[in-house]
């Protein structure tokens, strides 16, 4: 028997070993949901223009003859876990006001990613973003080259790639990351036609203007704070909250999230169909999904993990009823 035969048998033996059980489908499904939330960071923001409240949901909820036709209990006037904290308007500022921006950037939007602040300029498929905060940002794109530079007197790393997933012709990836003297991370990411020099100039002039980038009117507002919850992600098309003990530990959206999908309302097979504010809705409590039909091929989704944020039916209905969406 040749060495190559032994190698072949070795690989086949190893591949045929008993594998520990793994629920790949469930784990992949969770990953897909995380990925969808995360990609919204890279692919949303432009379409959001305040156009009046299109969803201000009153407490008028009834069963709609879905798979689970039970009617909800009469609306309660107050719930101990949500009442008394007043309305919540999630707003964000950005502490490093830019002194220079390249020509042709899109309108600015602001985001909160965990404890980090993000300033994004987005137009069509091009993005220029700056992130600032205590958590180390992610590179987002696989680089083909890496180099060193300085931003002020701080050492910085530059990542570049001439191509990336979904790149438009002429667009390239440039990112630069450094740590401030106050031990906070700053990263500038460009998925746009801008040169490395332009991106570095933008990076070097961050914070050179006094003051902060002021907040923009929020897309989502909430009638009531949920007690024990803290903002985790705030962006133009999504807002997430987590229990206070989970706050500040991760950048990517997690927890109880409210966002819009550019997808036609499509109730799944497992949950309950409702009408909420006169709009068709679908609640799948065990799966942590509450979809509301915004019509026009759009859906408002409330999503959470029942294991970390156990929410009863009444509580999630009450929360949904307090959402106002301008988009």
């Amino acid at each position: 028997m040749s060495f190559e035969d032994d190698l072949r048998i070795t690989l086949r033996d190893r591949a045929s070993e008993t594998m520990p059980p793994a629920d790949l489908l469930t784990e992949t499904n969770k990953g897909v949901r995380r990925d969808q939330r995360r990609r919204r960071w890279l692919a949303t923001g432009v379409a959001v223009v305040a156009a009046g409240a299109i969803l201000a949901v009153p407490l008028a909820i009834r069963g709609d003859g879905g798979l689970s036709p039970r009617l909800p209990a009469a609306p309660v006037t107050s719930l101990p876990d949500v009442a008394g904290l007043g309305p919540w308007e999630p707003i964000v500022t950005f502490d490093l006001r830019p002194g220079w921006v390249p020509d042709g950037v899109g309108p600015p939007t602001l985001e909160l990613m965990g404890p980090n602040q993000v300033l994004r300029y987005e137009k069509d498929t091009q993005i220029l973003a700056a992130e600032f905060g205590p958590l180390e940002p992610e590179w987002e794109v696989e680089a083909t080259a890496e180099s060193s530079t300085t931003i002020g007197d701080r050492p910085a790393i530059v990542h570049t790639a001439d191509d990336y997933d979904g790149a438009a012709p002429g667009h390239r990836y440039v990112a630069v990351r450094w740590k401030t003297a106050e031990d906070k991370w700053v990263q500038v990411t460009s998925l746009a036609p801008y040169s490395e020099e332009a991106v570095l100039r933008f990076a070097r002039e961050l914070g050179s203007e006094p003051g902060v980038v002021p907040p923009v009117p929020p897309t989502f507002t909430f009638a009531e704070h949920m007690a024990g919850m803290a903002p985790q992600y705030v962006g133009p098309t999504m807002v997430c909250q987590v229990p206070q003990e989970m706050s500040g530990r991760q950048r990517q959206p997690e927890g109880l999230c409210v966002y819009t999908l550019e997808e036609k309302f499509a109730p799944g097979p497992h949950g309950e169909r409702l009408l909420i504010g006169g709009r068709p809705a679908y609640l799948y409590l065990d799966g942590g999904i509450f979809d509301i039909d915004l019509s026009g091929g759009r859906t408002l989704r409330i999503e959470w993990d029942q294991q970390t944020i156990p929410l009863g039916r009444e509580r999630i209905l009450r929360f949904a009823a307090g959402i106002t969406y301008r988009g």
Binding site: A15, M19, L24, T28, V32, D35
Partner: peptide, 29 residues
Amino acid sequence: DSLRRFAYLICGDRHLGEDLVQEVLVKAY
């Protein structure tokens, strides 16, 4: 299951292999 086995051979480590398969499937989705 077949993908997990393949990834195990490629990585030489079951846990890394599991992570790799999940990561690739999420992107494939």
